[in-house]
């Protein structure tokens, strides 16, 4: 437990002593502001639907870039060897990194809370929907950070890791529109894999255990794959 905390602190420090965190936070908040403005002016309703829907898809591209350096860079610098010869478990290393990237996501979301505040000043948003929508956003962040870390564990080239991450996540987005590509019976089978389908109920204010399970399982599977990928690389 303490090792995870130590590793988390190190990751956060690296995020904030380099331009990385500031670039991500400002880019993300800029996009969020844009989506909010467009969403409210185009639809004329006091809702965050457009903003949050777009932020979810933004994460598909932003999070692999946020996580791509984690293992790729550690391997290139030789610091992975340092961590793996220190008395900490591989699981702690993976969790520390995942929690750190998730923390940065939470900070990004924290910045977007100004938008519901604006809505509350001028209108009367449905707070239940706002709450579940944000929960969905956190679910997406947790899942995509895990997938991004997995991509990063596969290679020691950051850019390759970022691209692999995006390519890995795209299908989970696209199957939401599977009926356009696949015969109907297939589309019905793959649609439950879609991030969109599960995110949709969060955005409508519905908390369904199946949707929560989806994001938890998504995260767990990719964290496990990251663990295995790092472990198996030692054998080669």
């Amino acid at each position: 437990m303490r090792a995870i905390w130590t590793l988390w602190k190190k990751e956060m420090r690296i995020y904030f002593v380099s331009p990385l965190a500031y670039v991500f936070l400002s880019a993300f908040l800029f996009l969020a502001g844009l989506f909010f403005y467009l969403g409210v002016t185009l639809t004329g309703e006091a809702s965050l639907r457009v903003l949050l829907g777009n932020l979810a898809i933004t994460q598909l591209f932003v999070l692999p870039m946020l996580t791509m350096r984690h293992f790729a860079e550690e391997r290139r610098l030789g610091t992975l060897e340092l961590l793996m010869t220190a008395p900490v478990s591989l699981g702690a290393i993976v969790l520390g990194k995942w929690l750190a990237s998730l923390t940065l996501c939470l900070l990004m979301f924290l910045g977007t809370l100004v938008f519901p505040a604006v809505l509350a000043y001028y209108g009367d948003p449905d707070w239940g929907v706002v709450f579940t929508s944000y929960l969905g956003l956190v679910g997406v962040a947790a899942a995509f950070c895990a997938a991004g870390l997995f991509a990063s564990s596969l290679t020691d080239d950051q850019v390759a890791a970022g691209l692999v991450g995006i390519v890995l996540l795209l299908p989970f987005w696209l199957v939401g529109r599977a009926e356009a590509l696949l015969p109907e019976e297939w589309a019905d089978t793959v649609r439950p894999l879609s991030v969109l389908v599960h995110l949709d109920s969060f955005n409508r204010g519905v908390l369904d255990s199946a949707d929560i399970f989806y994001f938890v399982a998504f995260t767990a599977v990719f964290l496990f794959l990251t663990f295995r990928s790092l472990e198996s690389r030692r054998w080669r």
């Binding site: 420090r13 690296i14 002593v17 380099s18 610098l77 030789g78 610091t79 340092l82």
Partner: peptide, 13 residues
């Protein structure tokens, strides 16, 4: 205590 061939440092820290 282990010192690998190239010192394992985080350049940002």
């Amino acid at each position: 205590g282990y010192l690998p061939e190239s010192p394992p440092l985080y350049p940002e820290l």
